[in-house]
Design a protein around this nucleic acid. Structure first.
Lengths: 161, 161
DNA sequence: CTTTTGGTTCTGGAAAAACCGAACCAAATT
DNA sequence: AATTTGGTTCGGTTTTTCCAGAACCAAAAG
């Protein structure tokens, strides 16, 4: 019955908005976030340019740009079909996983910066704070090593299944 | 010799800028990022309002706002001295650690959203992708549980030293 | 070789974010 | 009680971000 289908569309739209703001908060533009969210929930999951544009009611240029950043980040790729010129864009789960990993590894960057700060700071002038700082650096290192280890374990577990 | 001191100032300024963009990229405004960076490297590490303003060459309002977001986020607090009306702002290492933890825990939010997506998706129509999605949800959960565990261990290790 | 299709790139404008200066305020000082 | 000090809050300006529309382009179709 049509009623149910409309409900579903509405639910999906809401979810796309909701997930959209999540991705927005992690660094994408609103539209890029929504495109990613839509590809995540759309059925089938490969959607052509026009379908995306239609669903999000956005301009061609905006959709094009969104797709281009998503593909260059490796989060999205596309497939094609024989005798059909269109590209069908879809989530690239492997690439997404990769980007998650590198994002998590960003923890180490801060650690490196703080190391440099410690090198710069006058060691004698304020030992108490320097120790606090060292503690944080240590925590950073501890975390990043631990996370790295988690990832390694997960990958090896994936490998033999 | 003055030469050396000037070099040092310049190095510190550079470092503040550099760390500033790091903090900016993790959600703060440029100035807020720089204030945090400056408090991290300044010596002594408690600095009054005017010193911060002077170093960053920013307006009072901007510095005030930056300090207010940093303090409400718990990253910065201030101390006072007898017979001195000024507040001396400084990094709150404990609070910073806390905010790092909650940030790391944000990983789970995405997991929850994806769970909902999975619930919404037609299970029959594309099992292969749904499995990929499940894999990512699983990875998320795996990571967040693992990180949580790392933090717990770290805390217990801190407790008995 | 002209037209259509499936996009991409290049403006320009609207909206939002970041910052500044001035007005303001409470507590301390004169 | 008037002034100074140490900030905070308010309004406006600049800068940046985001998006739309049009021009553009290459490949395919007619």
């Amino acid at each position: 019955m049509a009623m149910v289908e409309e409900d579903k569309l509405e639910r999906i739209q809401q979810k796309v908005e909701q997930m959209g703001v999540f991705f927005e908060r992690s660094g994408f533009t609103p539209m890029t976030g929504r495109v990613f969210a839509y590809l995540l929930i759309s059925d089938p999951l490969h959607q052509d340019f026009f379908a995306i544009q239609e669903f999000l009611k956005a301009s061609k240029s905006t959709v094009s740009n969104a797709l281009s950043v998503l593909t260059t980040e490796g989060l999205v790729d596309y497939i094609t079909f024989n005798g059909d010129r269109r590209r069908y864009f879809r989530i690239n789960t492997a690439g997404w996983l990769n980007s998650l990993k590198t994002k998590v590894r960003r923890v180490t960057v801060l650690g490196d910066l703080l190391q440099e700060v410690l090198k710069e700071r006058n060691q004698e002038s304020c030992p108490a704070f320097n120790n606090e700082l060292k503690k944080i650096v240590f925590f950073q290192n501890y975390l990043s090593k631990g996370i790295e280890q988690l990832i390694v374990e997960w990958e090896s577990r994936q490998a033999n299944t």
